[in-house]
Design a protein around this nucleic acid. Structure first.
Lengths: 197, 197
DNA sequence: GTTATGTTAGTGAACGTTAACTAACCAGAA
DNA sequence: TTCTGGTTAGTTAACGTTCACTAACATAAC
C-alpha cells in the first residue's frame, strides 16, 4: 500500500463522486479531470493509468473491509452479535459512502480487467471466510440454527446485498441504516436456534 | 410484442452468446456480426439500433417471466409450494440459458439507457408483487412465518440472487439446479411457520 | 424491376494515452 | 544578488483505436 498525495486524494474523490452520481460507465479520464478542475492530461501527472485509479479505489474498499474483519474477529461477543455487527457495519459504511456500495456490486464490471476483478473477489472471499467461521462457531454453541453454514451465509449475505441494491435502485430513497436494523431483526430471528435457551 | 424473423433470431442468439461468454461490455455490433458470420453493417438490415437488440433480449426475459408468473398464480398448490416453484424455476431457466442470469443482474448495466432500465425494473417488480402476495397468503394460513413480508421477500430473493451470482463467478462450476434445490430446503426451513402444523 | 440482403468504405464522436511545451518554484554557484 | 539547472504541475494538440451508425453499391429471387 502506497502513500497518497493530496492531489491523488482529490482525483480519487472526484472519481468516487462520478461513479456515485452517474455510474462506472461515466468514469472517464476527461470526466475526472473536469471534476477536479484541470485538463485530462494533468491526471497523468498523478496516476500512470486509469486502471491505477480504480485500483486505488478498490484498495480503499479493501482496507476498510480488513479493519472491520479484524475488529469483529477480536470482539469477545457472541456469534449472533458478531453477525449483527458485520451486517450493520456494512450498512453504515455504505450509508456514509455510497460509492462503496457501487464497488460491492462491481464483480461483473471489472471482469475485463482480471487484476481488478481478483482484488474485488479477494475482499468478498474475506467476508465469506469470516462469516462462515462465525456461523459455525455459533452452531457449536447451539445459538445458531443447525443448517448448512454455506446456506446461512447465502441467506444473510444475500439479504444484505439485496437490501443495498433496493436502496440504490430506489435512488437512496430510504435510510439504509434503519432499513438494515429492521431487516436484521428478521434475519436474526430466522437464523438463531429456535430450540436454544 | 413484435414478430421476429429468422435472421433477427440468429442475431439475438449471437448477442446472447457473447454476453454469456464475455459479458455485456464485449457486446458490440462488430462482435455480433462476426459471430453471425457477416459484416457489421449487415446487422442494421435487421435491427434499427443496438438498443433495439437489447430491448428484444429483455422482451425475451420478460415474456418468459410472465409465463412463469401466470403459471404459479394459476397453480392451486400451497403458498410454500408456490415459493418453491418460483425459486426452482428461476434456477432451471438460468441453468438452461446462462445469459438470462446476466440480464437478471443488469439493473446497473442498463442505467444509461432509461428505457431499457425501466423494462428490467418492470420485470423485477412483477416478481416482487407475486412473491409478496404469495407470502402474505401463506401468513394468513399460518404456514409462513409472521415476519414482515418485505423482509421474507428480501431473504428469499436475496438468497436466490446470491446463489446465482456465486454460480456465475465460479465459472458455472456447480449444478445450479441441484444447488438451488438444496438451498431451498434451508430457505424453506427458515421461512415456514415453526408453530404451524 | 422491385425487394431483400448482403458488401465495402466511410462518418463523427469518444476513449485512454502521449508529446511538446510553459509557468512557477527552488536549489546552489558566481 | 543574480544566474543556472532541475523539478513539479499544468496546458493544448494530437495519436491510434474503437464505437454505433450510414451511404453507395452488388446480387439474387420473385
Amino acid at each position: 500500500m502506497k502513500k497518497i498525495t493530496g492531489r491523488q486524494q482529490e482525483i480519487v474523490e472526484a472519481a468516487l463522486a462520478i461513479i456515485s452520481d452517474r455510474g462506472l460507465e461515466a468514469l472517464t479520464i476527461k470526466s475526472i479531470a473536469a471534476r477536479v478542475g484541470f485538463s485530462d492530461a494533468a491526471v497523468y501527472r498523478h496516476f500512470r493509468s486509469k486502471a491505477q485509479i480504480l485500483s486505488t479505489i478498490i484498495d480503499l474498499f479493501a482496507r476498510d473491509s480488513a479493519r472491520l474483519l479484524r475488529e469483529i474477529h477480536g470482539c469477545s461477543c457472541a456469534e449472533l452479535e458478531k453477525m449483527r455487527l458485520f451486517f450493520l457495519d456494512r450498512c453504515r459504511v455504505f450509508s456514509a459512502d455510497r460509492v462503496l456500495a457501487t464497488v460491492m456490486f462491481a464483480e461483473n464490471l471489472f471482469q475485463n480487467d482480471p487484476l481488478l476483478a481478483a482484488k474485488v473477489r479477494q475482499v468478498l472471499q474475506g467476508h465469506r471466510r469470516l462469516l462462515l467461521e462465525t456461523l459455525r462457531g455459533g452452531q457449536r454453541k447451539k445459538t445458531i440454527r443447525a443448517l448448512p453454514a454455506e446456506h446461512l451465509f447465502t441467506m444473510v449475505m444475500g439479504s444484505l446485498r439485496l437490501l443495498v441494491l433496493q436502496w440504490r435502485i430506489g435512488g437512496y430513497g430510504f435510510d439504509l441504516m434503519r432499513g438494515g436494523e429492521k431487516l436484521w431483526l428478521s434475519v436474526e430471528t430466522v437464523i438463531k436456534n429456535p430450540n436454544g435457551e
